[in-house]
Simulated scan of single mutants.
Amino acid sequence: MSDSNKTDFTNPSTFILQGIPGLEAAHVWISIPFCTMYIIAIFGNFTILFVVKTEPSLHGPMYYFLCMLAITDLVLTTSTLPKTLSIFWFNSREINFSACLTQMYFIHCFLETESGIFLAMAFDRYIAICDPLRHSAILTNPVVAKIGLAVLLRGCLVILPLVLLAKQWPYCRTNIIPQPYCAHMAVVNLACTDTRVSSYYGLSVLFSVKGLDMIFITVSYIQILRAIFGLPTKDARLKTFGTCSSHLCVILAFYIPNLFISLMYRVGQNVPGHFHILIANVYQSMPPTLNPIIYGVRTKQIRGRLLRLFTHEGT
């Protein structure tokens, strides 16, 4: 019996995305939470952008960085979830080789960009709390724009070698990717050659980019907490800490799942395949869904602007 999963190609024209292998019968049911998350992510992040644009009091560094985060989340969700849902709903499994590499690039580029935005937001909170008198002088609009551009360029440049390496590997085993989108290691693992350089470079990016970002964010928050605990009253401490709470929540929602996924690809051989893939996809979609909710609920200025908007429309 011929094995349709095997072929003799070295440059595949298409890959086949399997969705969640082993759970094909439940794809329609699995699609419900993913579709819900996508709708919330699109609506929530566009709402953040609209609120910041239309409310002059929110035209400041913290909210400009929040807009960058919203745009990044929109790109991340749109890079993966439409194709994922087309697999679940229409069994549309094929993806062009170049499109697969493009999807891989956008996913990982904007994950690195999001990490950089979190670092920029931590820097903003550090200046606002530890050196408030110089905040407006340090984080001017041109400086904020340059930080955003630098973060984007960093993500674009560090991920480019991953895609170039993946493009040059020979794929002579199979063109079936056992998940619903083209993640880096999922594609590279299909190559029929020694791909350790890709794995090592991916790990170096993980630890030198996200790892360093986490270290700098941690250092920033150590200084922030020292400044907060140095305030004279409990009310002042709680009020000041409240300006950081949203940022801390979205950081935890981003870094913990992404580190878990990246390491699970490399050392989680004993994890059942369908569980691994399902959890990875949930974690991939969760931060863009949660970020606008967290900021909308916990940020007084955004919450107030939304209430005024809906109240005005309802009258």
Rank of each mutant, 00 (worst) to 15 (best):
T240F: 11
T174M: 02
L119T: 14
Q223Y: 08
T174Y: 00
F216Y: 03
M214F: 15
V205I: 15
V205N: 03
L133N: 15
A122Y: 12
D194V: 13
K239L: 10
M185R: 00
K234W: 10
T193A: 14
S136Q: 10
D131N: 15
D213S: 06
Q168E: 14
L152Q: 01
S199K: 01
V151G: 03
N189W: 03
M214I: 11
F118N: 05
P132V: 07
M185E: 10
C192T: 02
S220W: 10
L203M: 13
A120H: 00
I176P: 00
R173Y: 03
I224N: 10
D124L: 06
R226K: 14
A183E: 11
R173A: 10
V151P: 01
R226S: 05
G116V: 06
A191N: 06
G211Q: 04
I159D: 12
A128D: 06
I176W: 08
N141R: 14
T140F: 01
P178A: 13
V163A: 09
S220G: 02
V197K: 02
K234S: 13
V158L: 02
L203F: 09
Y126P: 01
A150H: 07
D213T: 03
R125H: 12
P132S: 11
V163F: 06
F229T: 09
L212T: 12
D131R: 15
V144E: 06
D213F: 09
C192F: 04
Q179T: 10
C182M: 02
